[in-house]
Design a protein around this nucleic acid. Structure first.
Lengths: 142, 142, 142, 142
DNA sequence: GTGGTCTAGACCACC
DNA sequence: GTGGTCTAGACCACC
């Protein structure tokens, strides 16, 4: 049985300040380190992904190549690209992606007019909600 | 002098669970409520945006139409779509978008293996950095 | 027992200056506010109505969608569209439809060469007839 | 130069209680007596009208035939159907159509919950508006 | 079966 | 050029 290729969400914009291949790398990296893609999973073929996101195949080549160099995937000529196993690198990347994500979140909030205090307040509110819900579920089980 | 149309960053993916027109709406809404697009600004024409993000014009029509119903933009047939002035609606939307953004941020963090405590820690770290930098800038000016 | 779907009279013309979806909206709105369709009634399915009036289903989608936004019906995906309960909106719509109907009536009369005075005369005549008939019915019962 | 055929608005519903040929007759009659169609105007060909309103040509034949018998149009074999001149008949028809229109208007209003008094009130309101507007226009010209 | 989304492409009015 | 409407038809998820 052939393993199905996981459909990832590629939100990409050719006109962005960030090059397309970087955007593609980001998506794949995120899916690898979050565990959506696991060791041995095959990526979409260069051509398929190119068609899917309406981008020139060469751009996909560049993204895949760099992901290979960085240790996230490996190419098996004639078979495709596959996710590698590499705890050290993944763990480092997790921290980087998380930190970047936090900074982007702050920046986005700021642009909307919300400061650090608003962020903390909202986070605490949601944290409380979750704690409540969990304790309710606990009660239901008893 | 003709006012230039602002180039927005549209990251959309046809294969996403979220419909394309919703993705487009989100981008435009965000740019309106964050002040990037202001009252009177013209949006890209239906056809231009369609070409730009390689989507069928009808899908853009649907996004623009709904944004009009929701009070963010207005259509002037033969001329284009323009950002409206609507404080009440924008202010409500800001809160909604912010809350959604917080929840997405938490969810993304969780998927990466970081919990509420990690988030608070990272946020505090960055907050501290910023405070430090600001006080340094103050010192520099003195 | 399955509730029967009420058959409405849809007179639409693709070549009219009024868009087809508006014509459809008008018919359904009228039937809702006049009480022919009541809360909970199911509308014809998109495809059935499309076949019935020989119009493309997408046009029906547009009409139903807008009626939903305006609060007259609601969609239950996989089940159908259903009439909502919404006194405030219905009462407002009644006034609007009535006023529009009066204006159309005047305009039609004018095109036939009858003025306001003819209209009042004819209305009074009919009003009298009715009053007479009612009093006769009363007499019959006594 | 060929005279252009006037595009009439045919709102017709095959599922109506009123037969389709009657609906067609009504539309054409109304356009003749209101002066939209004048003596000598050619009607759409049987086939064209059938296609236009997605109805079987035989139904159009029946409608045209009866309109001919009633003196509104005449057939010129090989050329088409043409509007006739017939003051007496038209004048009689005007009265009939007007009276029918008034009764339909009352009936529609009643179904919406508006009585004779509401009708009179609304008509007077609109009449007043019109008188006002006319006198303003008069003032403008002076 | 139901509604929902999307593409492809035509044709319209208005500027 | 601009937006607006419509048809034809595909494919999806949910029931």
């Amino acid at each position: 049985m052939k393993k199905k290729i996981k459909i990832l969400e590629f939100r990409v914009d050719a006109k962005s300040a960030m090059p397309i291949y970087e955007q593609i790398k980001e998506v794949i990296k995120y899916n690898v380190i979050s565990g959506t893609l696991v060791s041995g999973d095959r990526l979409m073929s260069l051509r398929d992904l190119a068609m899917r996101i309406k981008i020139h195949p060469n751009t996909i080549v560049k993204a895949y190549y760099q992901l290979e160099v960085e240790g996230f995937i490996e190419s098996k000529p004639g078979k495709g690209y596959f996710v590698k196993q590499n705890r050290k690198i993944f763990s480092k990347a997790k921290k980087d992606v998380f930190e970047k994500s936090v900074r982007e979140f702050i920046s986005k909030s700021t642009k909307l007019g919300f400061g650090m205090d608003d962020i903390f307040k909202e986070l605490k509110k949601i944290d409380k909600e979750r704690t409540m819900r969990k304790s309710e579920e606990k009660d239901d089980r008893n």
